[in-house]
């Protein structure tokens, strides 16, 4: 996939676990896991906003575009 998710790296930098982020953001661990492993097909602005707010980062810190073959 051209869009890669770097949520695990940002979480590691902030020292935040998946369970803690799940509680703070209000998204289930299963859904966060889908996002973290890159299996997600779409992300809502509301989810992205909540994650960025809790992790104190920009959307670009979590998502990146790899200009290569699929």
């Amino acid at each position: 996939m051209a869009i890669s998710v770097k949520l695990d790296r940002v979480m590691l930098e902030r020292g935040m676990s998946l369970t803690e982020l799940s509680e703070r953001v209000g998204v289930t661990i299963a859904n966060l896991s889908i996002l973290k492993t890159g299996k997600a097909k779409a992300i809502r602005f509301s989810t992205l906003e909540a994650i960025c707010k809790e992790l104190g980062c920009q959307p670009g810190d979590i998502l990146s575009f790899d200009d290569g073959d699929d």
Partner: peptide, 8 residues
Amino acid sequence: KEEQDLTV
């Protein structure tokens, strides 16, 4: 449905 399920 799959797309909806995989929307976070």
